[in-house]
């Protein structure tokens, strides 16, 4: 049904798209954060001593007091599952053969949203300790996907 009486022979639509390609810089803090992932397999944060907050991923500044952050810290090897979800559909709404687990892993006062792996669904719980599994060093490119997933720590 259409809202207007229309000529059935009129053209129906003009097809166009909005092509966008972007080259994103990592930023001053991101440069160091991703270099540490790539070269050292480490996840770094920055600390604001004034606000007593450790930002993970590391940031150049404290969003609360706007101070420049110069104290870089290792966010540690173990994070905690703060919350998780099971994905049953892909981005286009297609059913996945197996549900994918995505979790917010708490590191410092922040953390990363990433995949979980090597875990059985019935073992999964909020509060679980997990560690990152990195790609082999030679295959890392300085991407968040250099972390394959997080897995439970015994």
């Amino acid at each position: 049904m259409t809202l207007l009486e229309r000529d059935p022979n009129a053209p129906v639509f003009w097809k166009g798209n909005m092509p966008v390609t972007s080259r994103y810089t990592f930023g001053l803090a991101g440069e160091r954060f991703f270099r540490a992932i790539k070269d050292e397999g480490r996840i770094l944060g920055t600390r604001c001593p004034e606000c007593d907050i450790t930002y993970v991923p590391a940031t150049l500044f404290c969003e609360r007091c706007m101070a420049e952050l110069t104290e870089w810290v290792d966010a540690g090897e173990i994070g905690e599952v703060h919350t998780y979800t099971l994905l049953f559909e892909d981005m286009d709404g297609n059913r996945l053969p197996e549900p994918e687990i995505v979790a917010f892993v708490r590191l410092g006062d922040g953390g990363l949203v990433h995949r979980l792996g090597e875990v059985e669904l019935d073992e999964l719980y909020i509060g679980m300790n997990v560690e990152p599994v990195f790609k082999p060093a030679a295959e890392r490119t300085g991407s968040i996907l250099d972390i394959l997933y997080f897995r439970p720590v015994d």
Partner: peptide, 24 residues
Amino acid sequence: AQETGKELSWEAVRMALDSCEMTI
């Protein structure tokens, strides 16, 4: 700029606040 947009914004904000001795 190597900086992200956030970082550029922060630099300008810090300079503006410092110029009048104000804090956020």
